[in-house]
Amino acid sequence: MTDSETPEQTTAPAGGATPPDRLSTNPRSPHFDVDILQRGVGIRFKDRVRTDVEEYCISEGWIRVAAGKTRDRHGQPLTIKLSGPVEAWFEDQPKD
């Protein structure tokens, strides 16, 4: 395969120093990556560390969080989208 035939990656590699621009904890999402989630990703939203984030996007400036215990008709948690400054970091160092 030549360089022009390689697929474009939308997320950062699991061994990188910075988390990807967009990541989801839902396995049904195209932005789900188990290797990155196992490392642990910390999220700061509006100068507050959040542990309840379902999905985030740094470049667009939003996070999705569960809306209480409410579920949709498919049994998935109902989420709300909050806009504001988002920072992400890895909780642990990459394993070589």
Rank of each mutant, 00 (worst) to 15 (best):
81 K>S: 03
2 T>M: 10
79 T>K: 01
59 S>N: 09
24 S>R: 04
45 F>M: 09
78 L>M: 08
19 P>Q: 04
92 D>N: 14
41 V>T: 11
53 V>Q: 00
20 P>R: 01
76 Q>F: 13
60 E>Q: 05
58 I>L: 09
26 N>F: 04
45 F>N: 00
82 L>H: 14
19 P>Y: 02
87 E>P: 02
45 F>Q: 05
34 V>M: 13
39 R>K: 07
90 F>D: 04
42 G>L: 07
28 R>D: 11
93 Q>G: 04
71 R>D: 05
52 D>C: 12
51 T>G: 15
69 K>Q: 12
13 P>C: 06
57 C>R: 05
50 R>I: 02
18 T>K: 09
88 A>T: 04
25 T>M: 04
5 E>R: 14
87 E>Q: 13
75 G>N: 03
15 G>N: 14
55 E>M: 04
79 T>A: 06
59 S>I: 06
71 R>K: 15
47 D>G: 04
39 R>D: 01
15 G>T: 12
7 P>D: 11
56 Y>P: 02
69 K>L: 14
87 E>V: 00
83 S>D: 13
72 D>P: 01
47 D>C: 03
85 P>G: 06
58 I>V: 15
94 P>R: 05
35 D>I: 03
24 S>E: 06
43 I>C: 03
57 C>D: 14
20 P>N: 02
9 Q>E: 09
59 S>T: 13
56 Y>L: 10
48 R>V: 15
88 A>D: 06
85 P>V: 08
81 K>N: 03
73 R>H: 11
26 N>G: 01
31 H>R: 04
22 R>P: 00
33 D>P: 06
27 P>A: 01
31 H>P: 02
62 W>N: 01
41 V>P: 08
66 A>V: 10
58 I>Y: 07
18 T>E: 14
61 G>A: 10
50 R>F: 07
37 L>W: 07
26 N>Q: 08
28 R>G: 01
7 P>I: 12
67 A>Q: 14
51 T>F: 12
31 H>V: 02
4 S>P: 08
40 G>N: 06
7 P>E: 10
5 E>K: 13
84 G>P: 11
89 W>D: 10
27 P>W: 00
56 Y>W: 11
3 D>L: 15
63 I>W: 05
48 R>A: 15
36 I>M: 00
9 Q>Y: 09
21 D>F: 03
52 D>K: 00
35 D>S: 14
9 Q>I: 03
16 G>F: 12
58 I>W: 00
5 E>D: 15
22 R>N: 02
62 W>L: 01
